[in-house]
């Protein structure tokens, strides 16, 4: 039984945490910088031209970046005990899920309309290093994000877990795409979208432990 006197006696001056908006911007800014450095390091070794891509590539990446930020902001809002924040978190979670799945579906449709998905599948199966790149770029920011969220009061742990992995790895996915010479939708589906989606879904079952103090 929790005795009020025990709680009162153990009270110390506490340092309040910043608003979820400020914390999300802090994470996003620093993670972008870190991911950029790691991507440039990869680029240095592969000697590729970083900006030689079609316009669509940049539009898709801009949308993915926005979706990633929304997922991260939603996770921060969910970890702040406030009814207004929780409502906003819910809306943002729906928004980013719809957009993410929309882009995924569009990419899938693009593959299908090109008519060579089976052929591409065979070639794409050997490119697992792209997935390793996503993990290398996104691992540290993802771990840092989990630690930041644990410091607050994560309410919907499983949803937060999915949003955390979806947000941080989608951002890593954006950066890892600059490591590819060509834009190939089938490849995108197999080695970028699908692994991120699978990891996000898996995180649903591990989040309770990861986010509990």
């Amino acid at each position: 039984m929790t005795d009020i006197n025990t709680l009162v006696n153990s009270l110390e001056k506490v340092k309040t945490i910043r608003s979820p908006y400020k914390r999300s911007i802090k994470w996003f800014g620093l993670s972008l910088a870190l991911m950029l450095i790691i991507t440039y390091a990869f680029k240095y070794f592969t000697q590729q031209n970083m900006f030689a891509y079609p316009l669509y590539f940049y539009i898709e990446n801009a949308i993915l970046t926005l979706v990633a930020y929304c997922a991260i902001l939603s996770a921060f809002l969910y970890s702040s005990p406030d009814e207004q924040y929780q409502l906003k978190a819910k809306k943002l979670a729906v928004f980013c899920s719809v957009f993410w799945i929309g882009l995924f579906s569009y990419c899938l449709y693009h593959c299908y309309s090109m008519g060579h998905i089976i052929h591409q599948l065979k070639n794409a199966m050997i490119d697992y290093q792209n997935f390793i790149e996503i993990l290398s770029i996104g691992a540290i920011p993802a771990i840092w994000l989990i630690l930041m969220l644990r410091k607050a009061f994560p309410t919907h742990k499983r949803v937060i877990g999915v949003l955390t992995i979806l947000g941080s790895l989608t951002l890593a996915m954006v950066f890892s795409r600059f490591l590819d010479i060509v834009y190939e939708p089938t490849h995108m589906i197999i080695w970028r979208y699908t692994p991120v989606l699978i990891l996000a879904i898996l995180s649903y079952w591990f989040s309770d432990r990861l986010l509990s103090r």
Binding site: L7, S10, L11, V14, K15, T16, I17, S19, S80, P81, D82, E83, Q84, Q86, A152, F153, T155, R213
Partner: peptide, 20 residues
């Protein structure tokens, strides 16, 4: 008690307690 640091004094206390 454990989440006292997450309370933002510019926001509603009732809402904070209610969510917890």
């Amino acid at each position: 008690h454990n989440a006292l640091h997450t309370y933002d004094s510019t926001r509603s206390a009732k809402s904070w307690i209610s969510v917890i």
